[in-house]
Design a protein around this nucleic acid. Sequence first.
DNA 1: TTATTTGAACTGACTGGTCAGTGTGATTAG
DNA 2: CTAATCACACTGACCAGTCAGTTCAAATAA
Lengths: 231, 231
Amino acid sequence: MSSRDSEPRREDPEPVKKLRPARTTATRQKLFDASMELIGERGTAGVTVDEIAAAAGVSKGTVYYNFGSKSDLIAQLLRHGVDILKARLLVDQDGALSDGGAPGSGSRQDPLLAMEAMIGQAMDFMAEYPSFARLWVSENWRTPSEWQGTFTLLRAELLAVIGDAVENVAKAYPVDPSVSRGSLETAIFGACFVVGLDRQTYNPERTRDQSVAAIMAIMRGYVLKPSPPRG
Amino acid sequence: MSSRDSEPRREDPEPVKKLRPARTTATRQKLFDASMELIGERGTAGVTVDEIAAAAGVSKGTVYYNFGSKSDLIAQLLRHGVDILKARLLVDQDGALSDGGAPGSGSRQDPLLAMEAMIGQAMDFMAEYPSFARLWVSENWRTPSEWQGTFTLLRAELLAVIGDAVENVAKAYPVDPSVSRGSLETAIFGACFVVGLDRQTYNPERTRDQSVAAIMAIMRGYVLKPSPPRG
DNA sequence: TTATTTGAACTGACTGGTCAGTGTGATTAG
DNA sequence: CTAATCACACTGACCAGTCAGTTCAAATAA
């Protein structure tokens, strides 16, 4: 599944998924939903395949028919969640908040506002899929992990999205050159997860905008001039 | 277990620990070290009591003689780690970097420098005890968790330390009032864990100071005037 | 003497993974 | 039109192994 090197590395954004019979697609979706919920609550090792199957309303054999193993199910679950998150983060790149920009032609709005919108999207995602966030932070930094390669790949994809947003800010504003770009992106990335999870677990009274503002402090501390070209 | 309301809630902060014989203390320390390492690598559910006992060089019976259960061992492990981290964070509160301040009389140095020193201590801790950091982020946000009460308590203790440092900054500098103090502390707290873990797992080439600088961007974005009241 | 540790056996419940078999809609043969 | 065939998705009982926790007599240390 992972070492398919006979093809010349085509992008291949699932040409099979749509051809797959509707029944299987529905089953896989049910399994994703059920396992996301259960694994988010009790962790990968704390949930049994039987439980996942029962929660999804299918038999245990169906799990192994659709996925090669419990480990494989979780790997595909991670990919599934990252695809959703990436789609959310990229929404604002095409000027969701700009009123006149041509759609699909890249962001034409203020990069700091775009950053803020992106962090807002991240907060919304964490609120909507807290189980995914828990799964991520639970397994992401495990040293020899079954999903090490998966995490490395997915993490890079997400950081690339954040990196672009930071890059746009750095092109539009004078920024502190002594701050390493990578560390900054990591801090923002991690803060989104942690603040989002903390809000859900310990501080449900905090608003979305409060959380966004706290994370945006990182960016405001990164740009040198505190006076943006706003009216 | 949780609804014990016959006692008038005595604080009882381990009056036994120092009276305990040296042999037991050594055994407990060995068990802490071994379980911290193993659990950090494979998670609480992924490690067996037999493994922990073997890694600590004691018998399984000793584990159950010293701790009531696996769950109890982990709870005390969390407390153990937080005690170490708290001690580290508080080091700089007593003017470790100030040259003339009377020791033990509270920080007399620049609050932003104190903050920077504290984050540096946090980064050192994450580098020294990455397994504890992994354990923390793995279990902290689990919704109905065996250690929910433990986490709530320990989290509050750590946030109080960070909160004091932020408070000192807010007293010495004009800060952005639109940023919620709690969210900001959470962001710093979480960023320390995430940046520290990320450095260890994905970016070992990043220096300690780079990481500190990235997290300090949060504080620099929190204070309004970038020019400190120094001569 | 007393507290602590050992080591090994044991239990009872649980787990990932397997596999022979079932249900069903579509296709084909007669 | 009817029956046979096929591929696919799914089923659930079953297996071999694992794990937390118990028990206890003997050894060892303070």
